[in-house]
Design a protein around this nucleic acid. Sequence first.
DNA 1: TTAGGGTTAG
Length: 850
Amino acid sequence: MAVSAKISPISLHPDLHNPLNPKPHKPKSLNLTPNPLNPINNASLPFKRTQEIYALNTTTNTIDSPNLNSDLTQLCLLGNLKKALKHLDFMVERHVAVEENAWVSLISLCEMKRAAREGVIVYARIADSMRGGGFGVQLGNALLSMFVRFGELDEAWHVFGKMGERDVFSWNVMIGGYAKAGFFDEALSLYHRMLWVGGGKPDIYTFPCVLRTCGGIPDLGRGREVHVHVIRFGFESDVDVTNALITMYVKCGDVHSARLVFDVMPKRDRISWNAMISGYIENGRCLEGLALFSIMQSHVVEPDLMTVTAVVFCYVYDFGNLEEAEKLFYTMDFKDIVSWTTMISGYYKNGLPRKSIEVYEQMQSEGLLPDEVTIAIVLSSCARLGLLDTGVKLHEFANQTGHIAYTIVGNNLIDMYSKCNIVDKALEVFKQIPEKNVISWTSIILGLRINNRSFEALNFFRQMILQLKPNAVTLVVALSASARIGALMCGKEIHAYALRSHLEFDGVLSNALLDMYVRCGRLEYSQNQFNLHKDKDVTSWNIFLTGYASQGRGELAGNVFKTMLNEKMNPDEVTFIALLCACSRSGMVDEGLEYFNNMELRYSISPNLKHYACVVDLLGRAGRLGEAYELIKTMPVQPDAAVWGALLNSCKIHRQVELGEIAAKCIFERDTKSVGYYVLLCNLYAESGRWDGVARVRRMMREKGIIVDPGCSWVEVKGSVHAFLSGDESHPQMSEINAALDGLQERMKTIGFDMSKNRFDNEIESSKADIFCGHSERMAVAFGLISTVPGMPIWVSKNLYMCRICHDAVKYISKIVRREITVRDTEQFHHFKDGICSCGDEGYWGRDDK
DNA sequence: TTAGGGTTAG
């Protein structure tokens, strides 16, 4: 038979939707309805029979089975669940058999009152009384309907399996239940089973349920098949069925077919218009949606909330026309939570988070409470603005109302706390999310990463992949954490993972990979990734250029820039920052100035503060401090702290205390919070032997509560990252590390270098000078040396600037152990080989004329 | 029992 070929074997297995089966497309919604069991006042009951029932049964103990059953039904009809349950207890205690129709009334009442707990209790009673027998159609259907409404698909499935007989209602409820919970494939299987095995004939209620599954997957092919069924069973003129058909086509992206159905409908209701209009809008065909909207109005069909919300959405998202959206929004007489949220989210998405918070406050002042979606979006606005107060208030509200249980709320709390730099609070929220999804994990990994806790971020990433599949966004975030601490092996593993799992490589992921290789200092890998990068954008070129800049390879950067122009890629502001930076690190002053002068002339990019800071750096490093200072004084925009900071750094290199003090004064007029400038000034004084100055800056920092992060270095050995925090000796191999350092120190002394005292007359002074270094890289280098075979290069990253003593020490170590050692500090890469560093010492440290 | 809007991370 032709049809039999189409039937796939479907077993009615109770684990139809267990976790081994495909995940639901949509999470079960939480039942946040308050306990509906409010005691109903007796006085409000329309007749006295209730009291009589109790009077009769409790005092006389008469067993009157038919009457007791009809009393139970009566109580249910009255809607008095509490009394009905009490009455049920009474019957059960006396072993009075409860009739099926009484059970049906009781179950229907539980469903109506949304009394899930009570429903389960009654079901247990029913199961007891059935003693393993099957349910009749009436009772079975009532149970199915109740369990489906409460989202208890397991229980519904169990009941469905125990029904001796089923009618079309039973099938409809099950199909609808699975579809609503997002188990689309299961719902479709049930529909087919109903047709071919269950012998059921679909009715007008069946098709909306089934079509919802095709739209939900979405699966246009199967949707079309169901359309054929609609015609074959003769329901093509039913307005509800046809509306469902329109929705199905719209969700499957086939707006054309939706319109064909819409056009031939014999009768249209408001839902038909809404489905079609929002169908256009959902599919990005806003003009057609708006056109139909005006036709709708000419047909004297009053648009309702749904229509207007869709049109507002269209203005906000597709045209970015917030004014028009606003106009329409404020003409709505009645606004519900969804329409408010559309507007709030519209402002957020269009880069106006402050406005979105204002609208949210307006909504509150009109007495509406936010739901989980509103909370989530307002939290995103708080995150973007760093509005901790509002965020915390929302957190408290979510705790009180139970909305905290929604994953989306937890996820946005993580993001909000992270972006307000309270990452410990974010961790707390993360732990409490009952169902963590990819976004929960990605958000916490990102939170740790942006709060300089990349090492922990990577640990979270490792934990995550044991239980959940990361997506491209997760990988981008994890790669950025790897890049941050120079964890090349880890980054490569992520790269391999991305290839293995056939993840879609978008431009952002490819750029993140490139950035990781660049920041890990491996130019050969970077080059390779750059060549393989399919859709390079200006960011890709900029990352690549920055790589050469951080390696002090100005000429190579210049070549890349030429290639970029040859390939018709337009440079942007960042391109010139990278170029200027590369020139200044390589002492290419003239080339740098030429780029700077040509920026506006040839590429119509006007220099911003960052470009000026680069040029000050370019001149200053080269010792042309006077010119640098002159440029600051004559530049057309007001210099900011970073521009003066570049001058201060140059003053430190060339030990120009006076000019440095001028720069510092200007910096602290503009920025008193950034740690870096204090460190620079302190180092300037220390390098110049001005210990009074060092003490003064230290005092300033103490008074302002400025704390320098403890020094931390990372080294990767056999694929694992080891972190060394300065002053922390908790590493399990610490004694071996110290022994190695002692050994090296001895050998260095024989060639005239003392790691602890170099350059300074006494130890106290030397410790003042390098107080902001932490020397953590020494531990990391020593650990690298003892954990790898001789000859292997060592790669270390650190979070602070390397001090001169460490720099000298590593130079000597590279000579003694004959290894290439690379240290990446906050500024650049230092490749040490045979006692020489690639940074050329002078540009970085100034001449050692002491 | 049936349709329908707003959803977070790079």
